[in-house]
Nucleic acid binder design. Structure first.
Lengths: 244, 244
DNA sequence: CGATCGTTTGACAAGGGTCAAAATGCGTGG
DNA sequence: CCACGCATTTTGACCCTTGTCAAACGATCG
């Protein structure tokens, strides 16, 4: 049914969902099929659209196929904290139980495409993949706590950028030293617990020090290893048999 | 097998594990039995003992029956971030998948008692209870991110104390306006992303303002509602049919 | 009674916030 | 193709919350 296309120099745009889950768990062919099937039925959302509302019931598990979204909370007085980002291949509400309520809002950062995630029977490879995906998410939340609690501005930026590059690389959307970053400094500030003014100054200092460049919506690391040393960065490992 | 004892004025020391899970989900009698049985086999650990080591495999799901523990990460240079606390009734590693690795260390804060959590077959009330427990945990992690990212020192303290009181109340270990807090100001600092010096000063200011008292290891709120207003505190609600 | 751990205090430094305005970029309509 | 309007980035001056360092104080324990 699917025809492999090798004509141009274009890399085959593999499904980020299938790619990601396959890297988390060796999927049974039936489960791979189910995912492929689920992706046929896509839904698009414009930038800024609210996909999930805080305190509302979460009806079904979905997956993000394209675009970026953020999970965030807004306080009474307008302060906002972004808890984390949803990137292509990520699941939305996978860790859902009966009648569960959304713990935070989810909003599209740019144009976004989703599909419904296929149900996974207990014991299947797909169910294991969902569990690992949830474990990754928990891991990222913990990393976020450590960043906000014990890192200064420069470390927060470096650590977060490295983590984001790694997540994108997992679905083939980042190179070793560069990746697209479709967000404003204001969004970055609300992610890292800073003000946009301070994010700006910190970025400039890091640029001056040759730690990164950011032009045309693309982050580049002139020397990624140096950056990783700086914050003692470790790739997320959630289970024994993770790749590399 | 269990004899109900009503002789003295002593309240029956109900199992915190059974209490907590019962409040999260209406448990089938078989599941209640399984929990009771599991608790027979207890294990005690001294204060400071490391129950779980970061990056090590997590073999089984356990439950905390008595005492306090903390989940934490320590950086190369000694900085430490406490991600959250484990209180009586909490599960340890419930969200585990095959071959999963601990995302953070867990250490006993005082003398601690654990048992092995009974396995839950898919579809049972126990499995649902575990899922909700995991959802609560995720909720607390998100609250922690918001606290560290957007709250100042006083708000962090207030919000965290209120949350902790609520969690203890869930297992009958806290009154409406007071609860035991068996930790040092240093531990509090590493939880809230502050220094112990600043925690100390902030606590004093809050005492002066009549927001709280802390004597003999017990926190007291002279006016809990005022404190809740101050930080717009909302009890954690994870699913539609949570109690009240 | 010293030793140790935790709390408290003081003086000072600094990272990051605030406010306001200027520059830059960019999509859209004329 | 240009001009306008809006969003975003950048800069400057100033201030405040929180961190740092060091010492004193208090309680607990062998």
């Amino acid at each position: 049914m699917t025809r492999i296309r090798r004509s141009g120099a274009l890399p085959l745009p593999a499904s980020p969902l299938l790619t990601r889950l396959s890297r988390l768990v060796r999927l049974a062919s039936g489960d791979r099929e189910a995912l492929g099937l689920a992706e046929v039925n896509q839904r698009r959302w414009p930038a800024r659209h609210e996909l999930v509302t805080e305190h509302e019931p979460v009806r079904e598990t979905r997956a993000l196929i394209a675009g970026w979204a953020m999970q965030h909370r807004t306080l009474r007085d307008g302060r906002r904290q972004i808890l984390g980002f949803l990137l292509p291949g990520d699941l939305i509400g996978a860790d859902r139980q009966a009648h569960s309520l959304a713990a935070a809002a989810i909003a599209a950062l740019d144009a976004v495409v989703t599909c419904v995630a296929p149900a996974a029977a207990p014991g299947t490879s797909l169910s294991e993949a969902y569990a690992r995906s949830a474990a990754m998410e928990r891991h990222h939340l913990m990393a976020q706590v450590t960043r906000l609690g014990r890192f200064d501005a420069r470390e927060r930026l470096a650590d977060w950028l490295l983590e984001t590059r790694e997540r994108l690389a997992l679905v083939g959307l980042a190179a070793a030293d560069r990746f697209p970053l479709p967000v404003t400094q204001e969004v970055l500030a609300d992610t890292l617990g800073l003000t946009s003014v301070h994010v700006n100054r910190t970025l400039q200092a890091m640029r001056r020090d040759g730690l990164l460049a950011w032009r045309d919506g693309t982050i580049t690391f002139p020397d990624r290893l140096r950056l990783e040393m700086m914050v003692d960065y470790r790739p997320a490992r959630v289970s024994l048999d993770d790749e590399a």
